[in-house]
Computed example of a mutant assay.
Amino acid sequence: MSRPVASADVFVAIADPTRRALLDLLRIGEQPVKQLAEPFAMSLPAISQHLQILCEADLVQVRKAGRQRLYRLNPEPLKQISNWIADYEQFWQEKLDALGNYLEENSCSD
């Protein structure tokens, strides 16, 4: 069984703060790379590399409009992560509820 390329891994893609910030910017809507690069103190090629990783992870989709490339958010892979994390949230909530019950039952009375 072959493993996907690491850069195609959604977790790897969102691990970087710059890429998370790019995703936040794309929530507003489709944007060209120059507009996406404005808030960052890095070169356009560096931003393009980050966008390429996001594209490989299917978090961002790109289309050409004339000479521009327009990037837009694809939130579906993030929903999959959210669903996966929800199972762990349920697990920890059950553990915290059990701890709370234990502490209430075994509290020291003065």
Rank of each mutant, 00 (worst) to 15 (best):
K34W: 11
Q93A: 02
A8K: 03
A13C: 07
Q90K: 01
D24M: 04
P4I: 03
L22D: 02
S2E: 06
V10R: 02
S82G: 11
A41L: 10
E38W: 03
S43W: 04
C55D: 07
R63C: 10
D9T: 10
E56K: 11
Y71D: 07
L25K: 00
E76L: 03
G100K: 15
D58I: 10
H50Y: 02
I28F: 08
Q90Y: 06
W92V: 06
I47W: 04
Q31E: 02
Q52A: 04
W92K: 10
C108R: 15
I53Q: 00
Q93Y: 02
S48R: 09
G100E: 13
Q31T: 03
A13I: 01
L96S: 15
R27H: 04
A86N: 10
L25H: 07
L44C: 04
A15P: 12
S2I: 00
R69G: 01
L99F: 15
E56A: 05
I53E: 06
I28P: 12
D58T: 10
N106E: 15
N106V: 12
L99G: 14
L103N: 14
L54D: 01
D16Q: 03
V33E: 02
E30D: 09
Q68K: 08
I47R: 06
L54Q: 11
A8F: 11
Q90R: 06
A15C: 12
P75S: 07
L44F: 11
V10P: 14
D24P: 07
L54K: 03
E76Y: 13
S109K: 11
A65Y: 05
V60H: 04
H50G: 09
L25W: 00
A65H: 08
L73D: 03
E38Y: 00
L73K: 00
E104Y: 14
D24F: 08
R19P: 12
A37C: 04
L44W: 00
L70Q: 00
D87R: 15
A41Y: 08
V5C: 15
A86S: 08
R63H: 03
